[in-house]
Design a protein around this nucleic acid. Sequence first.
DNA 1: AGCTAAATGAAAACGATTTTCAATTGGCAG
DNA 2: CTGCCAATTGAAAATCGTTTTCATTTAGCT
Lengths: 144, 144
Amino acid sequence: MYTEKKIENLLRQQGYKITPQRRKILAAITSVNEHMTTAEIYDKVCQEDPGIGLVTIYRTLDILTELGLLCEVHVGGNCRSYLMRRPVEHHHHLVCSECGTVVDFTDCDLSGLEDRLTKDTHFEINGHILEFTGRCRNCIVRAK
Amino acid sequence: MYTEKKIENLLRQQGYKITPQRRKILAAITSVNEHMTTAEIYDKVCQEDPGIGLVTIYRTLDILTELGLLCEVHVGGNCRSYLMRRPVEHHHHLVCSECGTVVDFTDCDLSGLEDRLTKDTHFEINGHILEFTGRCRNCIVRAK
DNA sequence: AGCTAAATGAAAACGATTTTCAATTGGCAG
DNA sequence: CTGCCAATTGAAAATCGTTTTCATTTAGCT
Ligand SMILES: [Mn+2]
Ligand SMILES: [Mn+2]
Ligand SMILES: [Zn+2]
Ligand SMILES: [Zn+2]
């Protein structure tokens, strides 16, 4: 699990400066244990620093994504509403299509499939997106 | 495999009118055996009907997606560049991150994983997104 | 303390998509 | 067949999220 300090060091290592804005953005992301959209992150940071520019959020999220510290959720349909969170390890998502709740899971084990595809297509596979969609427990209960 | 006629009937059944524009859009989509972006579909239709409005493309693609006749490719990063194609059966994508080539594949067999998740999370799972990314044969060769 | 490249924020630009609205038209009722 | 009307269309404007530009500020190193 990444702490703010660890991320700061990582940024420094890469030659990025540690600014108050970046600190607040990191604080916002690491303080919430949920996936957030860019807008949600912006709103959260604004509570601490109403003057911050949305551009700065974008720029910082870009850097963090670049460094692999954030992951995205691609939701079907309107895929622009993708969410972000602090990273843990390689994992995937189970998304409730009614309320948007995201549950992480690990152990995807797609190696068999990956091998087959490599053989069949001669692609050099280096990643995958895997997400399940459905209705979460709450939404199932609520619908009754 | 859907023919233009079949799709037209489906539209009629749903109360949609069959217009020359819609016919041309269907022709464009079914004539190409490749994934196409909205813009590419627009360009293709324009060859037949230069007067057609881009709005009409959007509206028609919306309807077709709604009816489940089209599927999307969610590419990581800029996920707005999603592609569309005529449907066949349940399948997934292998996307070359250099040239954008999309290869379809079937037989994902995620049922074991799905069962485990259902048990663990009490979600009612009804779908999944699965995509591999990598470099296609051409791009590997070209890089050498 | 002073320097400089990196970072910031306001504003404008951007590209894709959506909305609005007046004109047109498919398909049914008469 | 004809007429009607809700559905459809296309031009234009609006919207939305994101990116670019640029002048100003600042982190981090002498
Ligand atoms: Mn995640
Ligand atoms: Mn496909
Ligand atoms: Zn839910
Ligand atoms: Zn390629």
